[in-house]
Simulated scan of single mutants.
Amino acid sequence: MILIALHETVLAQIGNPTPEAPPASDKILQMVRYLTWLVLLSGVCGITYAGGRFAWEKWNGGTLESPKMIAGGMIGGVIATSAGTIMNSVIG
């Protein structure tokens, strides 16, 4: 009886709030897009550098360190591009 009255008076008035973007969120989202672009550009440059280094190491017969660099760049790129999806699954 008390719970029903509490529900009808207090909890029914709270409702389900709709999400709203905070002020100046467009500038923050633009900065996030710039940072995403910078991360992707650095990943492409890193993989390109590692590919050139791989060819150089193969040509000179040295130890092969560059496959680790290529794998690291690829893994970093996958994490960077799926960061939004990862956060949505953790938060939601």
Rank of each mutant, 00 (worst) to 15 (best):
D26F: 13
K58W: 04
M69N: 13
Q13R: 14
G92M: 02
M69C: 10
N16L: 05
L64V: 10
M87C: 08
A12H: 03
K58E: 11
E8R: 12
A24Y: 11
P67V: 09
E20Q: 14
K27G: 11
V39N: 02
Y49W: 10
A71F: 15
M31G: 15
P22G: 06
T48I: 06
S42H: 04
R33M: 10
S25N: 15
L6F: 10
G92N: 02
E8C: 08
I4G: 04
N60W: 13
I86Q: 02
C45L: 13
A71Y: 14
I75A: 09
W37F: 12
L3I: 05
S82Q: 10
M69A: 13
L38S: 08
A80L: 04
A71N: 13
A12M: 03
P22I: 04
A5G: 05
G77P: 00
Y34C: 03
T63D: 06
V39L: 11
M87W: 06
A80Q: 02
Y49E: 03
L6C: 09
I14D: 02
A83W: 04
P22H: 07
T81F: 04
G51P: 04
G46M: 12
L3F: 09
C45A: 15
A71V: 15
R33E: 15
G92Y: 00
L40Y: 11
S82M: 11
T85S: 08
G15D: 02
E20L: 10
T18E: 12
T48P: 01
Q13D: 14
W37R: 13
T9K: 12
K58R: 12
W59Y: 05
N88S: 10
I91H: 10
I47L: 10
K68N: 03
R33I: 06
T18W: 09
L41T: 15
I86S: 02
I4A: 13
E8W: 06
K27V: 05
S42E: 05
D26V: 14
G43I: 03
P17S: 01
I91Y: 11
A83G: 07
R53F: 05
S25R: 14
I14R: 02
M69D: 10
P17Q: 01
